[in-house]
Computed example of a mutant assay.
Amino acid sequence: MRVRKFFERLFNWELWNFHILYAPIAPVWLWYCIKSRSLWFFTPSNPNITFGGFEGEGKKEMYRLLPAEITPKTIYVKPGIPFTELKNRVNAAGIRYPFVVKPDVGMKGILFRVIENDDQLQKYHAHIPFKYIVQEKIDYPVEVSVFYYRYPWQSTGVVSGFIYKELLQVTGDGNSSLKQLINQHERAKHRVEEMELRHGHDFERVLGAGEVFYLSFAGNHNRGARFTNLQHEINPGLVAVFDKLSKDALFYYGRYDIKTNSIEDLKNGKQFIVLEYNGAGAEPNHIYDCGMSLGKAYQTILQHWKVLYEISRYNARQGHAYWSYRRGKKYLRAAKHHFRILEKFD
């Protein structure tokens, strides 16, 4: 079993470690640093977001740039406050179970949880070491990602990627235990240790025929979500929706994660909620789950890096300066330290 999993990973680039996948094209990133004379050449890309949204920016920072009606109802919580105070704040905000909790500064679905009751909330509150958010759970049936960029000297942007997300889940057959279903699942079987940590108490449970069990509520590729490419759905209406959102926020490059009632509603600019968006550090995740070759994936990534470089260079010439080496190094070191701690608590 282990040997088979090893070879599956070896011959499927989508399962490779992030650093291994990106190592062959890293010199191109370095070349943009040299051309810009800045290790942080991307920082002017999104002038209203700290570090250009490459890493370490908070959810609060992003939500304040968007209209309140298209963002989830959210409160920000400091760890250590009395639980009664937390409960009062949640109730006053009109947020009801089940709801979502996650770090204000987070990534890759770390410490993302759906909270069903007081007991779960109290355990999460006692466990998490940093400021986090309590957020209404959006029940729109469709979750998508939209990769968008716009050159600052142009009035219309580009939707370069549009994908539908399916959360990591298994479906019961009336005979198999959860553990057996996980070991049979093409994605979950590569994450058995993580699954045991999260769902070990349910491993021997036999799921009824047709019963769906969500292994993760985070719609991230690194958390096992499956993507379906919706490139054929991109049209001028969809681009116009994100042109308006992005112009108001001075957002030039990155990826939106969205829940919507339907693809058509989103293209018409109605019945959707922005869960969050990622700036310069956003990966063009439409390279996954569409049968793309490794060479084509690299071509797509490099095309996006070129766009990022050109946007950043233009904005720098307009007065949005590159971060200094010292400032960027200090910020990135603090961000990575923050994430290492989060991973330990996850």
Rank of each mutant, 00 (worst) to 15 (best):
D202F: 15
K259D: 01
L167I: 09
M195G: 04
T228M: 07
R326S: 12
D202P: 01
F242M: 06
I115Y: 04
V114T: 07
A225H: 09
I182V: 15
A218R: 05
R89C: 05
F7Q: 06
W16R: 06
G106H: 07
A209R: 15
V159L: 09
T300I: 09
F41Y: 13
I49R: 10
E276Q: 11
P72N: 04
G279L: 08
F112M: 00
N175I: 05
S160T: 12
K296L: 12
K244T: 14
L197A: 14
K189A: 05
Y298P: 02
I25Y: 01
Q135K: 00
I115F: 03
E343P: 00
W40P: 00
V212A: 09
Y76V: 02
G52N: 02
V114N: 01
N222W: 09
R326H: 10
F83N: 14
G254R: 12
S246K: 13
K123C: 04
K344L: 09
Y322S: 10
I110A: 01
I128N: 02
N261L: 13
Q303C: 03
Y214V: 15
W153Y: 13
Q303M: 12
L21S: 07
V77G: 08
K259P: 08
I301T: 02
L266P: 10
V105S: 03
N278H: 12
D139F: 08
K78E: 12
N88W: 00
K137T: 00
T50Y: 00
K330D: 14
K5N: 10
K137S: 10
E166D: 07
Y256W: 14
N48E: 06
R113E: 15
F147T: 10
H232C: 08
K131A: 03
